[in-house]
Design a protein around this nucleic acid. Structure first.
Length: 244
DNA sequence: ATTCGGACCTGAAAGC
DNA sequence: TGCTTTCAGGTCCGAA
C-alpha cells in the first residue's frame, strides 16, 4: 500500500513518539524515509529498516491481531505493532543504512526540474507511468500517485519519455510536488488497508481524481475514466484530456 | 537493454 | 447460496 506520502506520514508521527526511547537496549536517535523505506536510526550508528510493501502497517501501541507479524517493545513499555496481511513487507537490522542508497534515484519531493529532465533523457523510450514508478529513477511514487500526477499534468500514461514537450515536463515536475505534498498533508490514502502510526485512516482518498474511478466522469472534461494494464499495473486515466 | 509475466501471500469483492 | 475468478498503495527474477 504505502507510497511516499504514507511512509512519510508514519515517519513523522513516530518521530515524535519514539525518538529517545530504547529498543532492545539501543537508543533511538532519529527516523528517516528513503523512497518507501522507513529507517529507525540508533545511537550506535546502526539502523532498522522497514518496507511495508502492499499491506504493511506500523501502529504505535497497536492491539495485536491475527495479522500481527512482530511487536517491537520499547524500554518504557510502549510498543510498535507490525501488521501485514499479505506478508510481503519486511524489516531488517543493518549496521550502516547507506547500503540502501544505491538502489534509489532522487527523492520525488526533492528532485529538481533539471534532474527530472536528466531522468527522462536516460529513458527516452520508456512509457511515462512505469518510469515515474521506477524507484531507481525517481524514489517514492507508486501506482496511486503516478496516476494522479499524470492526470494533473494532462499527460497520458503511455507516452514515451522522449515525446514529452518542455511545457509538459514542467507540468509533470510541478504536479509531482503538488500531489505528493497534498497527500502528505492529508496523511496519505486509505483505499483498503493503510493506517497511519495511530491506527487511523489517511484522508487523501476523497481527493483522488482518477485512481479507482474507472467508468466515472472525468472531473474536468466529458471523458470517462479508463482503466488499462500498463507495465503490469492498473493505470487510471482520462483518454480524452490526457493527451497521447 | 528494456519489458513482460509470474511469483511472493491473503482476503474482499465481483462474477456466475 | 455457493464456487470461481479477479483484484489489490510493491518489488524481484528470469525469460523473451
Amino acid at each position: 500500500m504505502p507510497e511516499l506520502p504514507e511512509v512519510e506520514t508514519i515517519k513523522s508521527q513516530l518521530q515524535k513518539l519514539i525518538v529517545g526511547k530504547k529498543l532492545s537496549g539501543k537508543k533511538i536517535v532519529g527516523l528517516r524515509r528513503r523512497a518507501k523505506v522507513l529507517i529507525i536510526d540508533f545511537a550506535d550508528g546502526s539502523s532498522l529498516l522497514f518496507h511495508l510493501k502492499m499491506t504493511g502497517q506500523l501502529i504505535f501501541n497497536g492491539v495485536p491481531s491475527r495479522h500481527t507479524r512482530h511487536i517491537f517493545k520499547f524500554d518504557d513499555g510502549s510498543s510498535l505493532v507490525f501488521n501485514d496481511v499479505r506478508k510481503f513487507g519486511w524489516f531488517k537490522k543493518v549496521k550502516d543504512s547507506r547500503v540502501i542508497e544505491k538502489s534509489f534515484g532522487p527523492e520525488a519531493l526533492k528532485i529538481s526540474l533539471k534532474e527530472l529532465k536528466v531522468v527522462l533523457q536516460k529513458r527516452l523510450k520508456t512509457r511515462i507511468k512505469p518510469l515515474l514508478m521506477d524507484q531507481k529513477l525517481i524514489a517514492g511514487i507508486g501506482n496511486i500517485y503516478s496516476d494522479e500526477i499524470l492526470f494533473a499534468a494532462k499527460v497520458h500514461p503511455l507516452r514515451r519519455a522522449q515525446t514529452l514537450k518542455e511545457k509538459e515536463i514542467v507540468l509533470l515536475w510541478q504536479n509531482i510536488q503538488k500531489i505528493l505534498k497534498a497527500a502528505v498533508k492529508y496523511r496519505g490514502t486509505s483505499d483498503r488497508d493503510y493506517l497511519d502510526a495511530f491506527g487511523q485512516k489517511g484522508e487523501y482518498l476523497s481527493h483522488l481524481k482518477v485512481y479507482g474511478k474507472e467508468g466515472e466522469r472525468c472531473s474536468r472534461c466529458p471523458g470517462i475514466i479508463k482503466r488499462q494494464k500498463i507495465g503490469g499495473r492498473s493505470a487510471h486515466f482520462c483518454p480524452k484530456c490526457q493527451k497521447i
